[in-house]
């Protein structure tokens, strides 16, 4: 079961809309909205947040949430919030939880962070990694290079060369927008490979989106690791099919 996500917003519509958007990119992830007050006003409600956290934690054990499943360790939940008091309400909810260990608050922009977190969860990332994905959405794109130079320090340049590479031209009208970026990042996250696309981390949806790659742009894919070839093929397949878009 993937990590679940709870969205806390002052507005019911914002929470529902953000969930709708993220669900489109991560259909297998449980993403729950806790927006507005109990009586539909602008504000946040502890009861709504607790109910969402309960569902997120309880149902991640299986379809038949019984007493046995409740004892099973759920995969964890990441909470995204909008403004000030939503953060306070989410923090308060953690204080009420019997076992808050698997619940992490992400300090991230709501929409960008949620989409990045949802894609990471869809790719099978653990609860820490899902939070990191959300929080990275606020900063500059992540560059996976440092780890690589460390592994090859003082070695010949050739040893740093990728195990597999490929060049693919974007053929769909909209290029590398949110949905394609989610599919690329989500798929790569589940492979045993480090992948860069035009220099950014291929498993980072926000990184891919910052490329601003439109139709006609050639994506240079470099991959390292056991699944390097599969990773390049995966990206190539999606790009050449135009992500199933016109």
């Amino acid at each position: 079961m993937t990590v679940s996500i709870v969205v806390v917003s002052h507005s019911e519509k914002i929470a529902d809309g953000a969930v709708e958007l993220a669900t489109q990119m991560a259909p297998d992830v449980m993403i729950l909205a806790a927006g507005g007050t109990d009586d539909g006003r602008i504000g946040t409600s502890l009861e709504k947040v607790l109910a969402a956290l309960e569902r997120a934690g309880g149902e991640s054990g299986g379809e038949q949430a019984g007493a046995e499943q409740a004892a099973a360790q759920p995969s964890g939940t990441v909470v995204l919030t909008d403004l000030g008091s939503a953060v306070m309400t989410a923090e308060s909810a953690l204080e009420f939880l019997a076992n808050p260990a698997g619940v992490l608050l992400a300090d991230a922009p709501l929409v960008e962070g949620l989409v990045a977190a949802a894609v990471a969860a869809q790719g099978g990332a653990d609860v820490q990694a899902v939070r990191e994905a959300a929080e990275a959405a606020a900063g500059p794109p992540r560059q996976p290079e440092p780890a690589r130079t460390e592994a090859t320090d003082a070695g010949p340049v050739s040893s740093a060369s990728p195990d597999c590479t490929g060049d693919f031209e974007l053929v769909n009208q909209a290029g590398m927008h949110a949905r394609p970026a989610a599919r690329v990042a989500g798929g790569l996250a589940s492979l045993d490979a480090e992948v860069t696309i035009n220099g950014v981390d291929g498993a980072s949806m926000t990184g891919l989106m910052t490329l601003g790659a439109g139709k006609g742009t050639v994506l240079h894919v470099e991959a390292w690791g056991a699944d390097a070839e599969r990773a390049v093929e995966y990206v190539g397949g999606l790009v050449e099919a135009g992500f199933g878009e016109p």
Partner: peptide, 9 residues
């Protein structure tokens, strides 16, 4: 649950 604003939490 009922106050809604920052005073609630």
């Amino acid at each position: 649950s009922k106050v809604g604003g920052a005073a609630g939490p």
